[in-house]
């Protein structure tokens, strides 16, 4: 397994602990963006609010266009979060190829999308809760999470 798959699998292990209605145990289950949006709503419900969540289409099945549209809304709003809440632009961070995620469940690209959720978690008002949860995970997973956060933060430009 290469490092990108390890990143994706480790972040899926972390995400699987969130309690949201949409399935989110396996990579293919999150490629429609629904579970990710619900998780973001749980992490910071003020920013990822119900009005925003209502724009995420559920039950999109295998419709790649609708899945990609959902993923675009998720990615764009996370980028908004960095800008508006943390006061940072993400410069030089290779944004995920959303079509590769929606069409092929590309784990390299999915890992980069999930990596951005970490950036939200470590800046949200409930970060203590979420970081303490991360610290309960296996050391191998924690190590991947740490490296992913460090890499992301290298791209923060105020």
């Amino acid at each position: 397994m290469d490092e990108h798959e390890i990143l994706c699998d480790s972040l899926m292990t972390w995400l699987s602990n969130f309690d949201v209605p949409a399935p989110h145990q396996y990579p293919h289950e999150v490629t429609d963006g629904v579970a990710i949006a619900q998780i973001l709503g749980q992490i910071d419900g003020e920013f990822f609010d119900t009005a925003w969540l209502s724009r995420i289409k559920e039950d999109v099945g295998d419709n790649f266009r609708l899945k990609t549209n959902n993923l675009k809304k998720v990615l764009n709003h996370m980028i908004d979060y960095f800008r508006e809440v943390t006061g940072n632009e993400l410069v030089g961070f290779q944004l995920p190829d959303l079509m590769a995620i929606s069409e092929q469940t590309d784990k390299q690209q999915l890992g980069r999308l999930l990596q951005l959720i970490l950036g939200v978690v470590v800046n949200c008002s409930k970060k203590q809760h979420y970081i303490e949860e991360i610290m309960q995970l296996d050391e191998d997973v924690q190590h991947v999470v740490m490296t992913a956060i460090q890499e992301l933060m290298q791209h923060y430009v105020p």
Binding site: T86, N123, K127, E139, I149, M153, Y156
Partner: peptide, 29 residues
């Protein structure tokens, strides 16, 4: 210091995550 024992992985992880808890939102790593 070459005589200093290497930090255990557990310690490195704890230090990192504790530093995040003490970090101001939005500040660099």
């Amino acid at each position: 210091d070459p005589n200093k024992p290497a930090q255990s992985n557990e310690r490195v992880l704890a230090n990192f995550f504790n530093s995040l808890l003490n970090k101001k939102p939005g500040s660099p790593a």
